[in-house]
Design a protein around this nucleic acid. Structure first.
Length: 490
DNA sequence: CGTGTTTGACCTGCGC
DNA sequence: GCGCAGGTCAAACACG
């Protein structure tokens, strides 16, 4: 930086002048000139930064408007399609729509989408239910179960049942429902999927940039190390929780399991991992719509031996009803095999008896993501310590996102599924197949461009803004200070 | 004194 | 119905 150079020069001059004890007036003038020059440079720098900021804001706004335009168009086209057709393809789209409504996060802030598009979503769902009911006799059963028999009634999927119970509310879209509904929806959505991050860490927890408050600790069966429970304290009603536990096999490995989606703007340092976990959860939920027999373990997997990182779905032993993505950032050797191993999709939390094994193309040139998680670079922190020294985990994930176009594409699709409603859930088709379709359709136009612009600008803030749209703090969502109000307290 | 942690008690879901 | 295990609560405690 020129500033530092000039400052250093000024300092040198100062020191010399003190040593020589020469005339002060001349020296002061010199310093004054130096200071003025410095100020000018700083002003220039400031102006330059302002321009950059303005430019970024413009980019962001144009992208955002474009994005919502696409969403709107998509909603309209889907509505037309759904009402006019009964073909299987359209039923699959209906599945997509339904599944997208059930993603384990709150991708579309109700305040950010128009009421019109929300109504369209509800209409889709009602049409969809009819279609699914018709399909129950067939083998295409899983998505229905996935949604309708889930352990936690989700708002959208629960809607028809409640409509039956109370005829007066039959046609009332609950997306515009009460605050309690919103809160419960959020809480339920928060329990949809988990993202587990395995990383080598010597300290009790990894610093992921968020503020966490420990609310419990438990010795889990089969692991002598206690499992710690943390709650996000960035916003009072944030539903996000995480569990931290040492791996029983390797005590140096810390398993951090995230659950839920932040309902508040994230700190810069938390964006990467939050985005990554959201995307991973989205991948999980997107890919979970095809099934195998229950209990078969991992679903799809992405192995990259060269980089020794893995992303795979796993059956989470402690909570088999909640699908979990495991992001393995440890440097443990991967099984020697082909460079990319492909697993068939199977979601063990679904007890469907149907067995739909659809070909997937996950292994076809699929992500080589991330950079090696160099243990030397790892920095682990106690919770609530502010990230003065940044997290290598976060950086690693950021690099993983920004450095590899393939991984970017995956997350782009995940993003589109997060924010695009029916735009991206991969029904019962092969995930890769659908992925390709999506990238050639809307996601390509929106999400991919977003990522391209992100990678070109290298802005981490962009990740924050776009992957995890800044949501307003919940002002009236919950009257309680605790986000997790249980039945007993009501 | 405010904030965060600890820890025993309690709740809930699940399997038998 | 009972026991077990996971998850959460909340009072007590520690710390700056």
């Amino acid at each position: 930086m020129p500033n530092s150079n000039s400052t250093a020069a000024a300092e040198e001059t100062k020191v010399e002048s003190f040593g020589c004890q020469e005339g002060h007036s001349e020296e002061e003038n010199y310093e004054l000139v130096n200071a003025k020059a410095e100020m000018n440079e700083v002003r220039k720098e400031n102006a330059r930064l302002k321009k950059t900021l303005e430019h970024m804001m413009k980019d962001y706004q144009s992208l955002q408007s474009r994005f919502f335009d696409i969403l709107k168009q998509e909603s309209h086209s889907k509505k037309a399609t759904m009402s006019a057709s009964t073909s299987h393809i359209k039923i699959e789209e209906a599945h997509d729509q339904l599944l997208s409504l059930c993603l384990g996060r709150s991708p579309r802030d109700p305040k950010n989408i128009s009421d019109e598009s929300r109504l369209v979503q509800v209409d889709h769902h009602q049409d969809l239910k009819a279609n699914l009911t018709l399909e129950l006799g067939s083998k295409l059963q899983l998505p229905t179960e996935l949604v309708l028999s889930g352990p936690i009634p989700e708002n959208s999927s629960e809607e028809p049942k409640e409509a039956e119970a109370s005829p007066s509310s039959t046609k009332t879209p609950r997306t515009i429902g009460s605050e309690d509904d919103e809160a419960s929806q959020q809480a339920n959505a928060a329990k949809r999927a988990r993202v587990s991050v395995r990383a080598r860490c010597d300290t009790p927890t990894m610093n992921d940039g968020c503020q966490w408050r420990k609310y419990g600790q438990k010795i889990a069966k089969g692991n002598p190390c206690p499992r710690a429970y943390y709650r996000c304290t960035v916003a009072p009603a944030c539903p996000v929780r995480k569990q931290v536990q040492r791996c029983v096999d390797d005590m140096s490995i810390l398993i951090t399991t995230y659950e839920g989606t932040h309902n508040h703007p994230l700190p810069m340092t938390a964006t990467s991992i939050a985005s990554t976990t959201s995307a991973a959860a989205s991948m999980l939920l997107s890919g979970s719509s095809t099934s195998q027999l229950p209990g078969l373990g991992s679903s799809f997997g992405l192995f990259d031996n060269s980089r020794q990182q893995q992303l795979y779905l796993s059956k989470f032993s402690s909570s088999p009803l909640l699908p979990t993505v495991t992001l393995d950032l440890t440097s443990s050797p991967s099984p020697s095999s082909t460079q990319y191993r492909t697993f068939r999709p199977s979601v063990s939390f679904c007890s469907s008896e149907s067995n739909i094994n659809l070909p997937t193309s996950w292994g076809n040139g699929y992500p080589k993501f991330g950079t090696p998680f160099d243990r030397k670079n790892q920095e682990c922190f106690q919770p609530n310590h502010q990230p003065s020294s940044q997290v290598s985990l976060t950086e690693t994930l950021t690099k993983a996102i920004t450095s590899d176009p393939n991984f970017k594409s995956v997350i782009a699709v995940a993003l589109s599924s997060m924010v695009g409603g029916g735009a991206a859930s991969y029904g019962s088709q092969g995930v890769g197949e659908r992925l390709g379709q999506h990238l050639t359709q809307n996601a390509k136009g929106s999400a991919s461009s977003i990522f391209n612009s992100l990678s070109s600008s290298g802005s981490q803030k962009g990740n924050l803004t776009l992957l995890q749209p800044p949501l307003p703090f919940p002002e009236s969502k919950s009257t309680s200070s605790s986000p997790a109000i249980r039945d007993k307290s009501l």
